[in-house]
């Protein structure tokens, strides 16, 4: 594999970002981005899962029977997601109450299975680690960017802290609190990214 970690990271985060290139993982992108704190927990969960599942699938790639390779990947991904779920529930129960249903859905996040199947099952653990990290960071970058618009416009806060002079100038955009707000933001972000970051 000629790809260096640097190339893998650049591709995964920018030019081949799974969210705006393949429109993968948008269920959670719509659901958890109205508050930045929720988004950050979700991103950490996804990064951990993509990295760990990629490395594990890569380590086992020569031992996995072909006909059960998908079920094996699901088993590996589901186990890591359950660990993430338990840890968030134990350390931040209030955030878990809100993002809990979506943490479970990380299992079905197509980015993770996509990277395990397309990259980790054919590459060594070290490049697979970087590929998982890149996919997770790419996903996180888009989610954080959306949350950084939705939370200030929807709630007048950033990470729960009021914007300066909020009482004077701020007016609530209710749509940013609701999932359609994320649709608009995702559309705008995809537009900008494809125009500026992607060379067709």
């Amino acid at each position: 594999m000629a790809d260096t970690p640097r190339n893998i990271l650049t591709q995964g985060i920018f030019s081949e970002n799974a969210v705006y290139r393949q429109v993968l993982g948008i269920c959670s992108a719509l659901a958890v981005t109205n508050l930045l704190a929720n988004t950050l927990f979700m991103c950490v969960g996804v990064i951990f899962t993509t990295v760990m599942s990629n490395v594990t699938v890569s380590l086992l790639r020569n031992h996995i029977p072909k006909r059960v390779r998908m079920i094996t990947q699901v088993l590996i991904i589901a186990s890591y997601v359950m660990m993430v779920d338990i840890v968030i529930k134990a350390t931040s129960p209030d955030i878990h109450r809100f993002i809990g249903p979506y943490v479970g859905l990380i299992i079905t996040n197509c980015i993770i299975m996509g990277r395990a199947e397309a990259f980790a099952s054919q590459n060594r653990p070290w490049p697979s680690f970087w590929d998982g990290l890149a996919a997770g960071l790419g996903y996180s970058m888009v989610l954080i960017a959306i949350a950084l618009v939705r939370e200030p416009l929807g709630f007048g806060t950033v990470l729960g802290m009021d914007l300066p002079g909020k009482d004077i100038w701020w007016y609530q955009w209710t749509i940013m609190v609701m999932p359609p707000g994320a649709f608009f933001m995702l559309g705008i972000m995809t537009w900008i990214a494809r125009a500026r970051l992607v060379k067709e």
């Binding site: 059960v68 088993l75 660990m83």
Partner: peptide
């Protein structure tokens, strides 16, 4: 293979 993997990850969780 599947049994071993299930046991291993089940124990981990």
């Amino acid at each position: 293979f599947i049994l071993s993997l299930t046991l291993f990850f089940g124990a981990g969780v």
